[in-house]
Write a protein that binds this DNA or RNA. Structure first.
Lengths: 214, 214
DNA sequence: GTCTATAGGTGGATAGAC
DNA sequence: GTCTATCCACCTATAGAC
């Protein structure tokens, strides 16, 4: 494996475990069995390395989501459940993959670090990676739920993202939290749990006055 | 205002904005207009300061949740919507309060920082603050939904926590994300949106095989 | 591409005067 | 309780040999 790849792997793990500020390039190069100067040689700076770590994992997942949605829409109007599955399954499946699983756990934790920090350039560039995804999926959901006001649909989409992101970020604590009742490694079961939960939420009648005080 | 309080206020804001490792005690004491040695004098260490910042805000909110649930249960079996409101309204209301609002936004972001870091003592002590809450509310939900398997109920409770935590953590980006359609400052509207969404999710029929592969 | 060496800076924590 | 002064470990980044 090349030095560049070893650095990406080590950085991914350490950034997830300790945050960006909490991880020194020294720690990364040591863990990667590379020289201290290698980060700057291969990536230019610590910040560019962070971007590279994100892009390597997110690009394939978001491509999969869009291809899945493309396939669904090519054969007519997809159901609400199908749209939700196209959104949830790609990240959750990678998340659980025995080979790549840890990598996406780490990325989920890194996203937690980045989104928790309100004003960082890291976060801005991260959000760009999701622009197309948000646009395509909200459009598909709106076609399936024409009665739902746009603001309500967006709120519910945010709730869905929160459920997914939170589940992934704390997956290693879920067993302890639930005293072993919930098994985060059973991803197909998790998908079959999350899709109906979210679908029912999206179909719920709007309470009087929600989000439209005037 | 005492030096101790000024340090807590400054630390809360800076930890939220920049994470724990990204915030130096120097930055905190400068922002608090206090002496560099004051953090160690009043709190002993940076880590104990982090704990103090969390406890100051979380303790009253979790007390409010439990009192609300106590009142509900004193007058019979509360409805699913009432239980969810008792769980969601206290943090969301503080979150939006003109005086204390920023403080809880900061705590939400700090929770994001802490939960994103898998192995920290900070996270362990943070989780303890929620032990009673989780126990009492899952029990109340289970009484209201006796047909739902315990594992399914816990999954759905995790989804709810994710929706709430995520909404609070990114509240300052919601306007931008939704092109102004969703207004995170309309908390009563948000509560009236989130409660029916989650209630419908909790009541959704369980898909075949979810969470019980064997 | 990889190494050593080092510059130049910031970190948490403390000692001891007031 | 608050201050100054200081210790020393650690940080990112770069220069320059190989």
């Amino acid at each position: 494996m090349s030095t560049k790849e070893r650095i990406l792997d080590a950085a991914e793990r350490l950034f997830a475990e300790q945050g960006f500020a909490g991880t020194s390039t020294r720690a990364i190069t040591t863990a990667a069995d590379a020289n201290l100067a290698a980060v700057n040689y291969h990536f230019g700076s610590k910040e560019s390395l962070i971007d590279a770590v994100f892009t390597r994992r997110l690009e394939p997942i978001n491509r999969q989501r869009l291809e899945w949605l493309d396939r669904l829409e090519a054969t007519g109007q997809p159901s609400l459940e199908e749209i939700l599955e196209a959104f949830l399954a790609p990240p959750l499946r990678v998340h659980q993959d025995p080979v790549e699983g840890k990598s996406l756990l780490h990325v989920a934790q890194m996203i937690g670090h980045a989104t928790s920090r309100p004003d960082s350039r890291i976060k801005d560039r991260l959000i760009q990676q999701f622009d197309t995804i948000i646009e395509r999926f909200t459009a598909a959901l709106a076609r399936q739920l024409p009665e739902l006001e746009p603001a309500q649909l967006l709120w519910r989409f945010l709730f869905l993202i929160g459920s997914m992101a939170h589940t992934m970020a704390i997956s290693q604590d879920i067993k302890r939290f639930t005293r072993g009742l919930c098994d985060p490694h059973d991803v197909e079961g998790l998908i079959r749990t999350m899709v109906p939960y979210a679908a029912a939420g999206f179909r719920a009648p709007v309470a009087a006055g929600s989000g439209h005080p005037k």
